[in-house]
Simulated scan of single mutants.
Amino acid sequence: MVQKYVAEIKPLNEAIIGTKPHGTAEFTVSDDALHIEVEMFDTPKNMQHWEHFHGFTDGKDAQPATMAQDVNHDGVVDLPETEAVSGTTMVPFDAEPHQMDIANDTYPVSDDQGHFKYVKHVPLADLKAQFKKVFGTDDLDLDKRVIYIHGVPDAVKLPDTVGGNLNEKYDKHVTLPIAVGKIKSVK
């Protein structure tokens, strides 16, 4: 059985980064693989962009963050502020999504026009096994997830109140959400 999912990815934090990143994501799940295609336009140029799906482990339906999630009113929705509506970072769209190694340097790099296209064929059994190890279930529940694109250049001035993540483990420029989309099942 083949299941298809899509997401229309819309800008987030565009006022502070000066561009309006947008694009699409398509996910095709077959018996043995998850095929992922993400194409983005107008992202910050010539830099690596982390991208992941986020969600909740309790079955709650994740929603895209909006400026309403700017709870500290600094004009920026940072990664910690997305968690209330979008959940936690789950699967990276990097060189090896099935390894679920979030912090690495194998994410897509935008060109001098701010465009990138990511295409990956992921072994489904490996991804589900690692997902179960980390989150206690092997159900990816794609239609309950959102996709985030992250990353702005170090030169972008961010308020001191912007966080990288709850543990402040990652630089806020790397993790700043720049675009988000709700993943939906294609009937």
Rank of each mutant, 00 (worst) to 15 (best):
V38F: 02
P21R: 07
A62M: 11
D112C: 13
F27T: 03
N165V: 08
D101E: 12
V162I: 11
T24L: 07
A7H: 09
F131H: 14
G151S: 11
V146P: 00
G75Y: 08
G181T: 01
V29R: 05
L79A: 10
F131V: 08
Y148V: 00
V38A: 04
Q99T: 10
K120V: 07
H150G: 01
Y107T: 02
H121S: 15
G151Y: 02
L127M: 12
A33I: 08
D105T: 13
I102G: 03
L124K: 14
E96W: 02
W50G: 14
N167H: 09
A25E: 02
S110D: 03
T66V: 12
H150A: 06
P97M: 09
I17M: 15
V152G: 02
Q69G: 03
P21S: 09
A95R: 11
D126R: 15
K117D: 02
V134Q: 13
K187I: 10
I36K: 03
V71W: 10
A62T: 07
G114M: 11
H73R: 14
D171N: 14
I149G: 01
V152K: 05
D141A: 15
G164A: 10
K4V: 12
E26T: 12
E26W: 01
V38Q: 07
P97K: 08
A129S: 14
Y170R: 15
I16P: 01
I36M: 08
H173W: 13
L34G: 04
H173K: 12
V71S: 13
N72Y: 06
F93P: 00
G181K: 00
E51T: 13
T137V: 08
V29H: 03
E51W: 00
T88S: 06
L127K: 04
H54V: 03
L127R: 04
T137R: 08
Q63D: 06
H121T: 14
K20L: 06
D74C: 07
I147C: 00
Q130K: 15
G164K: 11
P123T: 11
V76K: 01
